[in-house]
C-alpha cells in the first residue's frame, strides 16, 4: 500500500519539514504521494513533485482552504486517506493541529512525533519530554502519524518527476473562521531548518539585551535565533522562538546556548544537535551535562568576544 504525506506550506512555498516526512514515509512504503491542501498553491505542488521518491502530488484547492483551518483540511485528508495505509504529516503546529482530527474521524489511533520506523506498524517515539523512548505497535489498519523531523534526514528536494493531479475539494468550510495572522518577519534561516542556532535564556535579562547580545553572533554565523521557555515567558522574544518539549524540536549542526540553565523541558528540544556549546556563569548548570563545549563565564563579555574572534 501507498503512503500519503501532507505537505507543509503557506500556499507559496513548500516547507523543508515536508522533505523529512517524505523520508519517513519511504521507510513505511516504497510508493509515496504528497497531498497539498490550500488555495492557489500550484507552485507548492510543482515543488513537491520534484522531491526524490515522490510518485505523484495531489493538489486540492479552494477558497476556504486558503488559511488551512483544521476542520476543512481534515475533511480533505479523511476522504483521500481511503486509498492509503500510512498518512503522515510533519510534527509542526499545523500537523499536530490537523492529524488527530483525521485519526478520530477514521476511528484510528494517532502516532505522535515518531523518530524511527521499525516496521510498517511499529514506530519509536519519545515520551516524558524525551526522557524515554517508547516502541509502539498499532493494531489499526490505517496509520495516522506525525513525524518529528529531526529523526529523519530530508529527502532530496529535486530529482523527482512526479505528476501533479488536481482533485476537487470536499465541500464544507466548517465552523471556524480565520481572523488574522501575525508572523514574525525575519531574514534569518528558519529555526527548524537552520544549520546553526544561537539560543538565549533568562540569563540575558531583558528583550533589549537578548537582541543586543545575540543578534551580532547570529549575523556572524548566519544562524537562526532560538530561546528557552523562561526567555519567552519573560517577554524577551515571542513564542515562535521557543525551543523545547512544547516548543520547537531542533537538531542543528551547532547549537549555542547562551544564559540557558538547561531544564529538561529545554533539553528535550535540542539535545539531538550535533555539537552543543553552552555559555553560562553557573558552573553547575545542567546545560553543561549535555554540552560538548562549556564556557563558564559572563555572557555579556564572552559573547561579544566570541563575535570578534569568529
Amino acid at each position: 500500500m501507498t503512503a500519503l504525506v501532507i505537505a507543509e506550506h503557506d500556499n507559496q512555498s513548500l516547507k523543508a519539514a515536508t522533505l523529512n516526512t517524505v523520508t519517513a514515509a519511504l521507510a513505511c512504503s516504497s510508493e509515496v504521494d504528497v497531498l497539498v491542501v490550500g488555495n492557489a498553491a500550484e507552485a507548492v505542488a510543482q515543488a513537491a513533485a520534484q522531491i526524490t521518491g515522490v510518485r505523484k502530488v495531489i493538489l486540492v484547492e479552494a477558497d476556504f482552504l486558503a488559511d488551512q483551518l483544521s476542520e476543512p483540511v481534515a475533511e480533505q485528508i479523511v476522504v483521500l486517506a481511503a486509498a492509503y495505509e500510512h498518512v503522515l504529516a510533519p510534527s509542526t503546529a499545523h500537523g499536530k493541529n490537523v492529524m488527530p482530527r483525521v485519526a478520530a474521524k477514521l476511528d484510528v489511533a494517532q502516532l505522535t512525533d515518531i523518530i524511527k520506523v521499525v516496521s510498517t506498524d511499529t514506530f519509536e517515539r519519545p515520551i516524558y519530554a524525551g526522557s524515554a523512548i517508547a516502541t509502539v505497535q498499532t493494531a489499526d489498519a490505517k496509520k495516522v502519524i506525525t513525524v518529528r523531523t529531526t529523526g529523519f534526514n530530508p529527502a532530496a528536494a529535486t530529482g523527482g518527476a512526479g505528476a501533479v493531479e488536481k482533485q476537487a475539494a470536499q465541500a464544507g468550510a466548517g465552523k471556524s473562521r480565520f481572523v488574522s495572522r501575525e508572523l514574525t518577519k525575519s531574514d534569518r534561516p528558519e529555526l527548524t531548518a537552520a544549520k546553526i542556532i544561537v539560543s538565549g535564556g533568562r540569563g540575558l535579562g531583558s528583550g533589549e539585551n537578548f537582541k543586543k547580545v545575540l543578534e551580532p553572533l547570529a549575523d556572524k554565523l548566519n544562524a537562526a535565533i532560538g530561546a528557552s521557555r523562561a526567555a519567552v515567558d519573560a517577554g524577551f522574544v515571542t513564542n515562535d522562538y521557543q525551543v523545547g518539549q512544547t516548543g520547537k524540536i531542533v537538531a542543528p549542526q551547532l547549537y549555542i546556548a547562551v544564559g540557558i540553565s538547561g531544564a529538561i523541558q529545554h533539553l528535550a528540544g535540542m539535545k539531538d544537535s550535533k555539537v552543543i556549546v553552552a555559555i553560562n556563569k553557573d558552573p553547575d548548570a545542567p546545560i553543561f551535562e549535555v554540552a560538548d563545549y562549556g564556557l563558564v563565564g559572563d555572557l555579556f563579555e564572552a559573547v561579544p568576544e566570541l563575535v570578534k574572534a569568529l
Binding site: G130, I133, T135, A139, E289, V290, A291, Y293
Partner: peptide, 20 residues
C-alpha cells in the same frame, strides 16, 4: 487500546563534554 507499547528504553546518552 489501539497502540501496544512493546518496550520503553533510555534515550541515547550524550557523553558529557569538556569545559574550555
Amino acid at each position: 487500546p489501539r497502540l501496544k507499547t512493546l518496550k520503553v528504553t533510555e534515550p541515547p546518552k550524550r557523553s558529557g563534554g569538556i569545559k574550555v
